[in-house]
């Protein structure tokens, strides 16, 4: 397992945590905070998946 794979796993775990915080904020009716965390989750998840994607194409 390479360092980038570990980073990808950390990013996916961070995305899950961000999603959880976003859902908790949504339940507290803190909409701006929820959107912030959900955006962080989406971006972190996308970055993690892009890191492990095989193939030479971009």
């Amino acid at each position: 397992m390479q360092l980038l794979d570990v980073l990808a796993a950390v990013l996916v775990l961070g995305a899950a945590a961000a999603f959880t915080f976003g859902a908790m904020s949504l339940a507290r009716a803190s909409d701006v905070e929820a959107i912030y965390f959900l955006v962080i989750g989406v971006v972190a998840l996308r970055a993690g998946v892009q890191l492990v994607r095989p193939g030479a194409g971009a």
């Binding site: 980038l4 796993a9 999603f19």
Partner: peptide, 26 residues
């Protein structure tokens, strides 16, 4: 979405396609 991400990472471990270099992945 998280389930899709974890399965993508799992599938990427043993793909038979041309592995991308570290620089390209980054």
């Amino acid at each position: 979405a998280v389930l899709g991400g974890t399965t993508s990472i799992a599938l990427a471990r043993h793909t038979e396609r041309v592995p991308a270099s570290r620089r390209i992945r980054l």
